[in-house]
Simulated assay, not measured.
Amino acid sequence: MASAPYIVTKGIVLRETETKDADKILTVLTAERGKISVVAKGVRRKSCEYAACAQHLAYSEWTLFQRGEWYYVREGSTEEQFMGLRTDLEALALGCYLAELTEAVTAPESPAPETLRLLLNGLYALSTLHKPAAIVKPAFELRLLCLAGYEPLADGCAYCGAADPEQPMLDVVQGVVRCGKCGVGERALSLPLCRDSLAALRHIVYGDPKRLYSFTLGPEALKRLGAAAEAFVSAQLERSFRTLDFYKSLQGPLMP
């Protein structure tokens, strides 16, 4: 019986789990095969030539072979380790959250080129471009959920149709923008925006992905965008994220 052919692919490690005999089980996001489970045998030994590839958030080219539902590593070479994250605990914590969020919305064995590109660009924005976390986090959250099929309707008030809603709000459950006076019964499910934060929301949802982080906001508008994006993720996915809790613990107490 002929041996299975090798598969060459590039992917980023979303999660790593140590197992017996110096092995690791990796959750790797690839463009062609989406999210796959990879067994890296002996990778925790100092002699392993591809140990750097098996680190959390490392982007590498992998040579794999498949047995059943599992992929096994033959060899690997590192493409990008995002070293700027590894020297900044807060940036690293946010990067880990981006990876956990990506894992949550990505299907196994389903091509995900746009999702992989989004994650790589997000990590690059934090690691190399040093974009503010307060911009990267909400932009990534909202854009990722758009790719996952949760795109909010932000082109006007969902109730009265106004293109420029008065006292705009984002209903995080229904995924729609509305005027502050419209849909009063849904008020408890909505987060307040403003003219600038609504414009940023529209830029994120409808704009060129290559310019995702190319916007600026004042502190108050940025705070509103961040709160709305985080609440939208929580409402749509109905779960919490351990890495988000850790990232927020590094922010310190809020100023009164």
Rank of each mutant, 00 (worst) to 15 (best):
L126D: 11
E90N: 10
E166Q: 12
T63D: 01
E141T: 02
V173W: 11
E114G: 00
G180Y: 11
N121M: 10
C146H: 07
V136K: 03
T63R: 15
L120W: 05
Y150F: 15
L120A: 08
A133Y: 01
T102C: 12
F140N: 09
L64A: 05
L129C: 04
E109W: 05
E100A: 06
R117S: 15
V105Q: 08
A163H: 07
L98A: 12
P108S: 11
L92K: 07
M83W: 10
G76W: 08
C179V: 01
M169R: 15
V105I: 14
G84A: 02
T78N: 04
E61R: 13
A162G: 05
T115Q: 15
P192V: 02
L145S: 10
Y97Q: 08
A162D: 14
H130P: 01
E69Q: 13
G122S: 15
Y124A: 15
L64T: 01
D196W: 03
Y71V: 00
P168G: 09
L189K: 14
L92Q: 13
L189Q: 14
R86I: 02
D196V: 00
L98S: 07
I135Q: 15
D155P: 00
E114Q: 12
R143L: 10
P165T: 04
W70P: 00
R143S: 06
W70M: 13
G95L: 06
C160W: 13
P132T: 04
C194A: 14
L118F: 11
E151N: 01
V173G: 02
E61N: 03
R187E: 13
T87N: 13
L126T: 09
E151Y: 01
R195S: 12
L126M: 12
L116S: 09
F82M: 05
C146M: 07
L94Q: 03
P192D: 12
L64G: 04
R117A: 15
R86Q: 13
V73W: 06
F82E: 09
S110K: 15
Q167K: 08
C146N: 07
C157P: 14
R178S: 04
L89C: 00
D171L: 08
Q81S: 08
Y159E: 15
G95A: 06
L193V: 01
L170I: 07
Y71N: 07
T87F: 05
R67H: 08
G185K: 09
R178W: 00
Y124K: 15
T102G: 10
R143P: 05
L94G: 01
L129H: 12
L126Q: 11
L89H: 11
E75D: 15
G68N: 08
Q174E: 15
T78F: 00
G68S: 06
L189W: 12
G156P: 04
L147M: 11
L94N: 02
V184G: 14
A148H: 03
Q167P: 00
T87W: 01
A99D: 03
G76Y: 06
P165V: 03
L101G: 02
P113I: 09
M169A: 07
L145N: 10
A154H: 03
E141F: 00
L98N: 09
L118S: 08
T115C: 08
A104S: 15
L147Q: 13
L116N: 13
V172K: 08
G180L: 07
